[in-house]
Write a protein that binds this DNA or RNA. Structure first.
Lengths: 116, 116
DNA sequence: TCCATTATTCAATGAAACTCGAAATATGCC
DNA sequence: GGCATATTTCGAGTTTCATTGAATAATGGA
């Protein structure tokens, strides 16, 4: 991931409703959810939700597929992992002396992320 | 980390110059860099840089300390790790069937992040 | 074909963010 | 005190984003 893609992904996530929608899709997993269900869970009017989902889609954070009349949105795992990798890349210039500061498992991740 | 803090952190990072400044500080490590050096590296006028550094500071992503006439900015490891943890939390609802999609090491992190 | 369902596009409005020169503040040295 | 250095604050202009009702597609069933 390059800087421009990272900014696009971060901008997409940097909004209350979009982050909520994205988290919902992350927790749901690859099966995804129809736009209507997301709108209902988030309490947003359809046009507003579309606006936000398009932002996530354009940033490559989610995927879109049609199933009958519904359009299913799902997380795009590679994008999330790429973003996380970009943020932590070359942390401390790779010096071992400050490696603990760069380790997600050591500092601020008590809940079940990838390791759980 | 709660949703509001995550949005604040993501908003702070969701800008070309701020992300560049933050990445510079991540690569530099705990020693940090004076504002002037950051401005020079990024090619920004001082007042613009201050605007962006304040955004990172307010979001808790960086720390600030004065050393003589210089103000040194440094990354705040806990904030970065907390953000990463928030993004990946409860991925796939914790089901093992899609765990690989939630593992940063498996999908999109070829470069030396925490594991390197 | 006609209708119901699901979702997107359009358009207008209001709100917030970014930029940066000039002025002000804080510190150190002589 | 007087001056140079380092950074922040202020202010005005420009740009971009967010919201949402109404209209428009796309699909499936009777």
């Amino acid at each position: 991931m390059d800087a421009a893609s990272a900014v696009a992904a971060l901008s997409a996530l940097a909004h209350e409703h979009r982050l909520a929608a994205y988290r919902l899709l992350v927790e749901t997993g690859p099966d995804g959810l129809p736009a209507g269900v997301i709108a209902e869970r988030l309490g947003l009017p359809p046009s507003s939700l579309t606006f936000h989902l398009q932002a996530l889609l354009h940033a490559g954070l989610v995927t879109q597929r049609r199933v009958s009349r519904q359009i299913i949105y799902a997380m795009a795992p590679a994008a999330m992992n790429g973003l996380v990798a970009y943020l932590t890349e070359h942390c401390c210039g790779g010096r071992a002396s400050c490696a603990p500061a760069c380790d997600p498992a050591a500092a601020g991740a008590p809940e079940g992320a990838s390791a759980a």
